[in-house]
Write a protein that binds this DNA or RNA. Structure first.
Length: 594
RNA sequence: GGGGCAGUAGCUCAAUUGGUUAGAGUCCCGGACUGUCGAUCCGGAGGUUGCGGGUUCGAGUCCCGUCUGCCUCGCCA
């Protein structure tokens, strides 16, 4: 070892010891007579002092020191003189009196410094990730990530789960996201697909009798990115045999309990609360509601039907919905202009036709440009429905149910953050259950599996497969943390008759199903145990437990919104020879339409 | 594919209504200084205003196109 201690290790009790430290120069303060260096590694910072007693040669060497140089110093630990203790540093009581120094590696003047107070632009950070990752915040986050993964692995090992690796090179399956494809050199014209999840493999493992499987699995989906979405991401994937939904949920409840305790030192009350999908949509407009605050959606379609106001009345008469939210005490915080912006927001992003709003005045008068279209009596009913008080702001959307959900969910989320209706550090865990089996794809005029085509329906809904597929609920469950989907799973179909019916609904012919995943259908006929599982989004867990608002900050080497790696410059072009081996030809843009 | 925001010195930002030689802090280089910890003080260097067109007597500023990054809808569990 080149060092005897780390830079976060030494305390007053080490005074007098001769030590060797290595690290990066975090900062230096040159006083001519003496030079102070904060030496940094991932464990902390220690002040090292060059003074005349270090000797002329060492002092001379010290003058060359610049930030981010990698140096090794040997010296004795001493208490800092009275009045110069730095209470901000754990090592702040002591300093190293340098006897010799070696500059292990000079640092070129970097484009930015890892811990500089004004964070550089993200593209610069990503292009120079080695500097960015050197910073305290990123190091903290990656340590947190490592702890979370270890905690998960330990937990599942303790519960007799077996860690099994599944292939990265698989085959493309229909449904779900767009695949990342890898061309085969041996079989020209064919492609592997990178796994969107190890779903099918883990079901095979169940059939093979490994009744508790777990894996920290890299997954790939070639879809557009978001603040909480990367094209390659990591799941804690697990599957269990001879279980029902409650067993899976109970298992994950236990993991949440331990995580909250280990990471935040918080006690979580189990079982975690549950809400059905239908209830979540009704009360919050979304299947992953942030339950750290209220501001629930309120239906007033019946009142709208009584109104003269044509916009409301026609929507109500057409069987659509008029729903709204109330922001307590927010009337004065939202000017006409801000409300106009909100209107534009729900129109452009969610297809709402408009945003109706009322400010509650003193004396309970509702004021709004549209107020004149309502009788005083009806306005009073609205106020009562929303439980309004003077100073409140009521926002309403009149539209199809789905549009009211989306628009009001987005407004609720926005207002909740802006009005600080919750403590951002607070954590809320809950389950959403009873998802629909299918949603309707209007473009393709057919049903889609909401989760995946092997999801089992609720036993009481099985007959609806024939009569009312849209009402058929799945044994599916999502773990929601702070309004973010942190995991999701299902109990799988292990009955080939039901499986066939589901394929039929999805418009998949028997031959096609056999061709695409015959291996699973076959396996299901050779002694498949009832089974189910879940996958947790590890990147999101880190994000949520770390209080971060960006998934890129939870990943050592993330991609940009255009799925590029700015450091390695991936994706890149390849040699003609490589293409030839694969029998591939790159089309020009104008050929694409052919 | 659609909508929005941003791009000015190595970095973070400023630049009035379109008007003189594009500024500040920091970093970098040189100098001073024996207790600093965002050290301080003095001096210096550093610019294709993302790129390409256009309007204008004159463009960092206005218009068109384009590239990159971010947020978002669609997409995605």
């Amino acid at each position: 070892m080149l060092r005897t201690h780390t830079c976060g290790q030494l305390r007053a009790e080490n005074v007098g010891e001769k030590v060797t430290l290595c690290g990066w120069v975090d900062s230096y303060r040159d006083h001519g007579g003496g030079l102070f260096v904060d030496l940094r590694d991932r464990y902390g910072k220690t002040q090292v002092v060059f003074s005349p007693e270090s000797g002329a040669e060492v002092q001379g060497q010290s003058r060359a020191i610049r930030n981010e140089d990698v140096i090794k110093v040997i010296g004795r630990i001493d208490l800092r003189p009275e009045g110069t203790v730095n209470s901000k540093l754990p090592t702040g009581e002591i300093e190293i009196r340098v006897e010799s120094i070696e500059i292990l590696n000079k640092c070129k003047t970097p484009p930015f410094f890892p811990n500089q107070q004004d964070q550089p632009n993200e593209d610069l950070r990503l292009a120079n990730r080695f500097l960015d990752l050197r910073g305290n915040k990123m190091q903290e986050t990656l340590v947190l990530r490592s702890r979370i993964i270890k905690l998960m692995r330990d937990y599942f090992e303790k519960h007799d789960f077996i860690d099994v690796e599944t292939p990265i090179l698989g085959r493309s399956t229909p449904e779900g996201a767009r695949d990342y494809l890898v061309p085969s050199r041996v079989h020209h014209g064919t492609f592997y697909a990178l796994p969107q999840s190890p779903q099918l493999y883990k079901q095979i493992m169940m059939i093979a009798g490994y009744d508790r499987y777990v894996q920290v699995a890299r997954c790939f989906r070639d879809e557009d990115l978001r603040a909480d979405r990367q094209p390659e991401f990591t799941q804690l994937d697990m599957e269990m045999s001879f279980v029902e939904m409650d067993d899976i949920i109970g298992m994950i409840d236990g993991l949440v309990e331990i995580s909250a305790k280990e990471i935040h030192g918080q006690e979580v009350k189990l079982p975690l609360p549950r809400m059905t999908y239908a209830e979540a949509l009704e009360r919050f407009g979304h299947d992953a509601p942030d339950l750290r605050f209220g501001m629930e959606l309120i239906d007033c379609t019946d009142l709208a039907a009584e109104a003269e106001f044509r916009v409301f009345k026609s929507v109500a008469d057409a069987g659509n919905k008029v729903r709204g939210i109330i922001a307590k005490g927010a009337a004065s915080k939202y000017s006409r202009r801000l409300i106009d912006n909100m209107t534009k927001f729900v129109q452009e992003d969610f297809g709402a036709k408009g945003l109706a709003w009322f400010k509650v005045e003193e004396g309970m008068k509702l004021s709004s440009p549209i107020a004149k279209n309502f009788s005083d009596e009806l306005l009073a009913k609205f106020a009562e429905r929303f439980d309004a008080e003077p100073g409140d702001l009521i926002l309403m959307v009149a539209d199809k149910y789905e549009v009211t959900c989306k628009a009001l969910y987005a407004l609720r989320k926005k207002l909740g953050a802006e009005l600080e209706l919750y403590d951002p550090k607070e954590m809320h865990y809950s389950w959403i259950t009873e998802f629909p089996m299918f949603d309707y794809d209007e473009d393709e005029d057919r049903w889609n599996a909401m989760h995946h085509p092997f999801t089992a329906p609720l036993p009481e809904d099985i007959e609806k497969l024939d009569t009312a597929p849209h009402e058929c609920r799945a044994i599916a469950y999502d773990l929601v943390i702070n309004g973010s989907e942190a995991g999701g799973g299902t109990i799988r179909i292990h009955d080939s008759e039901v499986q066939e019916k589901v394929f039929g609904l999805l418009g998949m012919e028997k031959e096609e199903a056999q061709e695409k995943f015959g291996f699973l259908l076959d396996a299901l006929q050779y002694g498949a145990p009832p089974h189910g599982g879940i996958a947790l989004g590890i990147d999101r867990w880190v994000m949520l437990f770390g209080g971060l608002d960006n998934i890129r900050d939870c990943i050592a080497f993330p991609k940009t919104q255009k799925a590029a790696d700015l450091m390695t410059k991936a994706p890149g072009s390849v040699d003609r020879k490589q293409l030839e081996e694969l029998a591939l030809k790159v089309m020009r843009l104008d050929e694409k339409r052919v």
